[in-house]
Design a protein around this nucleic acid. Sequence first.
RNA 1: CGGGACGUAGCUCAGCUUGGUAGAGCGCUUGCUUUGGGAGCAAGAAGUCGCAGGUUCGAAUCCUGUCGUCCCGACCA
Length: 604
Amino acid sequence: MRQRGEVAPQVEKRILRPCEPAVEPACPCMRGEQGAQGRARDADRAREFIDGTVRLDAQGVLFDALTADEAGRAVVAGAGIDAGEFGHDALLRRDGWARPVACPRGGRGRSPREPRRVMSDPALQPVVKEIPPKAADLSAWYTAVCLKAELVSYSPVRGCVVLRPYGYGLWENLQKHLDKAFKDTGHENAYFPLLIPEGLLLKEAEHVEGFAPEVAWVTHGGQEELTERLAIRPTSEAIIGVMYAQWVESYRDLPILINQWANVLRWEKATRPFLRTMEFLWQEGHTAHAHAAEAREETLKMLDVYREFAENVAAVPVYAGIKSASERFPGAVETFSIEALMPDGKALQSATSHDLGQNFAKAYDIKFLDADQQIKYAYTTSWGMSWRMLGAMIMTHGDDRGLRIPPKMAPLEAVFVPIVRKGDERAVAAAHDAAKTLREAGFRVRVDDRDQQPGWKYAEWDVRGVPLRIEIGPRDVDAGTVVLVRRDKAKGDPEQKQSVPLDQLAQHVRVSLDAIQLSMYEEAKAFLHEHTPRANDRAEFTRLCKERAGMVDITWCGRAACEAHVKAETGATTRNTRALDGDETSCVACGEAATVRAYFAQSY
RNA sequence: CGGGACGUAGCUCAGCUUGGUAGAGCGCUUGCUUUGGGAGCAAGAAGUCGCAGGUUCGAAUCCUGUCGUCCCGACCA
């Protein structure tokens, strides 16, 4: 068998160099760029006659020198080929088969492929090449920004991304803040195995059922098939529950307050950077308590830690509340969540906190002898936030120039861009000096002294969302100043640029970063509030849900059937619920008695 | 997992309908000139056309399969 592309020997020797066409085509549509109507396929052994010149290819397929490739033409046509070599001798009897082919009227011109996205509205032209405008296509914008800002790369593993150093920097800042909050509330870190024996996972029925479709299994160790399959953890309640059972004997052993920073794996069908990947990073807290009230208190405390982190660090405003029964964590008594609103009107669950009651303690046998000499099951909780929170932050704050990172999350708080002129590189040294001063004051900064145009660097750091840019050029060196440029403000905004004395740089940077953090949060909060309509009747409610108007706030009956009906009709589900705040008595969605207020939205 | 689209140089894509020597722009390398919002000139390097089969004298192009990505649904942190 010949290799691909290798030409049979008998043809090879006949290949001539490209030659000029012998004739002009009878019709433009005969040219390569035009489609002659339905020129028959090879299988049809098409034949054509053009301007008296008859050509055929090696299969005996006739073609003219103007439409097919020059070399190929030369092979067969020019040389008066002996078709016997190819077994098509019948076709070579020109007189017998050559006949004119009608030239189709307009031809069927091949139109250039449509651009992927048509953006005829000038307002929707990209500001940065390779990043589509955010408002035109949030999905495309999001993916482009994640890649262009070098947060992630796709990997050869389906559904798994590489978290690049800049993206990992975001994760480290999330870890830093959350970890401190966990420690401040009395928790310790530990690490549990990645693999969970099947039998263990099966112990909590609801839990198994909930995760079954997305569990990956290890079935072999080397060549040997395992007698018991091992699940790659989709979450760690099972393995941790078993260990807690070993550790707890007395009420004096409680509470256990442990957090784990880990990766987990869920066999997802559709994936997107941060929002949904098969393997993802998260933290999962697991606690065990002697009393139900204490477990509930813990659940709510951690929910508040998440809310506080989202709002004050990631600058993402959220609604905290109780999940409906259908959205509850498999096996939990009650699930609480914080929910953020994305620019397209879809909600993004950013963290969850579960009161597991005694369900898991019973499944994994976590029991203790209480002070009253009774053996009792413990009350457990679990709570988690994943790198999905980064996705929420990216979508909430980014703009057409790229990422905008809130200062507290930014791997780099400020970047120096020195401007050099021929024979004047003082700015570079000045920038390094100033950067050293800032670093010593605790700021995360870098000097971009790469060999690129200043404008190029501005655009680059805009895409990567560094909150503050510090320009320093010859004029500044002379004047003893620098120019601070805020990423959160638009070009031309009077607040965007500010010239400050070099010797007061640290104070000004501090003030600017704080202002940026606050301003970004306020902006996002305004968006959330503007997109939290209260619907008062069913028609309005349905319309708002369908339009993705935001977090549609209604009084709700709390019934699963009602929720399912709303979902089928509008695509929206409850995000979370809270206590009624007035005398409302009927559910806006179905008219039954209302029991709670609920936010409804389509969600990620 | 259903419906749709797409895999060609690092990136964005053209070429495919009608099989005939692998293309452009940007980026990259080197040199010079530049540098306060993605610089200019010159020279240069770079692709087993996702992968595997099949058809053919010959496949980026046609056929089958497969893997991956994106979009819309369903499901989920």
